[in-house]
Design a protein around this nucleic acid. Structure first.
Lengths: 347, 347
DNA sequence: ACTGGCGCTCGCATCCCGGGAGTGCTGGAG
DNA sequence: CTCCAGCACTCCCGGGATGCGAGCGCCAGT
């Protein structure tokens, strides 16, 4: 019995080094890497022929594959996975870049903040940036009823996290301004800080003490609140999809490209994927179809959750081709998530 | 002297009919139209040979052109122009479709309304829908200061048209709730209905009668108001760009397609184009490069202004390939503009 | 264990070639 | 004068055929 085969463990050092340089070369060039190229760039002093043996092993184990008989090798999804898990060396962003990034975030408004974060991600990576809008903390803070016309009232609702929703209500009765302020004051003074469910429960009791029409008004407000919380709850903001048109890896297959962009419009399934990431902590990477969505076969998604007051409330990420410069994208996503967290926390 | 050449006026009746059917065929098929096809579909009982003579004339006058020697003819930009100006017969939408369209508009909110209008346009035409957000009437209606923390105040501003802006202000001093309501009341009671410029002028006089800190607060509100009016003034909402990926007229030239999508992201130049249309009244059509933007040379833009209370405040439109079914798109854009107008007016 | 060499397999670019579609022109018929 | 059939011509397009280059696997030799 041979005490050891020539591939004792999953991967010996030499194979790892070669896999690493192969992936790096391929990411840089975009073209299948041959044995000669590898022998030049690996640093090891080996002839192409020897390298070919290792490559054959790597192929057998499913880390690399050749598009056709006489092309070089290309990393498979599994190859990329191993690469990012154990071979990759990320270089953190330097201070200047971080400041630059921070400067691009527009902090005056949650919506703007999220939009600018998404935009920054796409600008820096030249791929598509995605941000899942922060989950509402779903508390009630303040309400205002404003009379627009006899039977149309502008409802302004401020949630606990300081976001403002507005909505126009059509009523059956024409309320006077004093009725409106009365109703608003009642809600503001008694229920600030409660969740809408709480309010609904507690209000049942007090409801009969109020004049009927005012009660009706407040019911409308509650409904709007529920709707605002549930519907506005989670959405995903995408920026720079255009960048993906320039990526030749993707734009070769027109059909695939269409599918991809359709995925972006459908939002929901993308949201599902991004929500997965918010359970983990730190940067997470989905390579190729790992996410379970076909349109993404040739894409990778790099995500990181962000938090406010220590609780995860959303996810930022980048969608690009599988062949992306992970060592750059990963820290960018990481930092953006952290900046977004701190910007949201100190509001 | 010959009293008349064989093309007496710009176009005789026969030439017009042939041009019309040629454009219609081309719009339907997408393939260059030959003389034989024309002789079959024109309704005239003419042989291909005779038709060829007319086609030669049409080509000489620049209405049609042939991609290469032995293909049929395709309409030029000028051909399309003549077609839509004098040859086109639009069939108005039937009642059912209008109701359907109206049902898709979400009326509870200006932003939603605009977004849904854009979406509807793209759905119905299978091209890209664009809507320029309504110009602010720039009046002040109501303001609210809400204390978030010691030195951070949520400013809620309602403009005359019932839209709500919100913004977080960082102040040097920590205001008490009563100071905040005082300032808000002062503004609400004295200046409702004024433009921000007016307020600024009139407040100069009264400013010294107020406590300094309160004055500072109101100055912040005014600045926010100005900014809201000017910045939020006009933006363009685009939907269904994805649809354009499927159009083979466009997706053949990958480079052009990129340019087009970049145009969509840059917004500003698109906005300029759409603003032109808001000066005219009724549906307006820009064919090919008529708009002066190269990325659009193979596109047409069909626009119509919409109004609130009889004043034009924005534009809706569709961007698609030059080869589009104008007789369908035109009424769709027209009706959408009208529905949007009435939805905004009765708010 | 490593390497040089050999034969082999593909992809890709090029060229060639025939079929098809459509045109312009011309001469003749109504 | 109008129309039309016929003809020669041009051009696109698709399908082989061919040559080249890149890369691989294998093997024998060090």
């Amino acid at each position: 019995m041979s005490h050891e085969h020539h591939t004792p463990n999953p991967l010996n050092d030499r194979a790892q080094l070669l896999l690493k340089t192969l992936v790096e070369r391929y990411i840089a060039d975009g073209q299948p890497v041959g044995s000669r190229a590898l022998s030049k760039f690996s640093g090891l002093d080996l002839s192409p022929a020897s390298i070919r043996n290792v490559m054959a092993d790597l192929e057998e184990m499913g880390f690399i594959a050749s598009p056709h008989t006489s092309a070089g090798r290309v990393p498979t999804a599994r190859g990329y996975r191993f690469f990012v898990d154990t071979l990759l060396t990320v270089k953190p962003l330097d201070r200047v870049e971080i400041n630059q990034l921070e400067g691009q975030l527009q902090v005056d408004n949650t919506q703007k903040l999220v939009a600018s974060a998404s935009h920054v991600l796409s600008e820096l990576t030249h791929f598509a940036g995605v941000v899942v809008t922060p989950r509402r903390s779903s508390g009630f803070r303040h309400v205002e009823f404003l009379r627009l016309a006899d039977k149309r009232i502008l409802l302004i609702l401020v949630t606990a996290d300081g976001d403002v929703q507005n909505r126009i209500i059509h009523t059956e009765k024409a309320y006077s301004p004093s009725e409106l302020t009365e109703a608003a004051n009642f809600l503001n003074q008694n229920f600030a800080g409660c969740t809408f469910d709480e309010i609904r429960r507690r209000i049942q009791a007090e409801l009969r003490q109020l004049r009927e029409d005012v009660a009706q008004l407040m019911a409308a407000a509650l409904n709007a609140g529920d709707q605002a919380v549930s519907e506005g709850a989670e959405d995903v903001v995408i920026s720079g999809e255009v960048n993906l048109l320039g990526i030749d890896d993707l734009s070769s297959n027109m059909g695939k490209l269409r599918d991809l962009f359709n995925l972006f419009e459908r939002r929901t399934s993308l949201l599902q994927l991004l929500d997965q990431s918010s359970r983990a902590q730190g940067v997470q990477i989905f390579i190729g179809g790992e996410a379970g969505l076909q349109p993404l076969d040739e894409c990778s998604v790099v995500t990181a959750p962000y938090e406010v007051d220590g609780k995860v409330v959303g996810t930022v990420g980048v969608i690009g081709p599988t062949r992306m410069a992970y060592e750059r994208v990963i820290p960018i996503v990481d930092i953006t998530a952290k900046l977004l967290s701190s910007a949201l926390t100190q509001r």
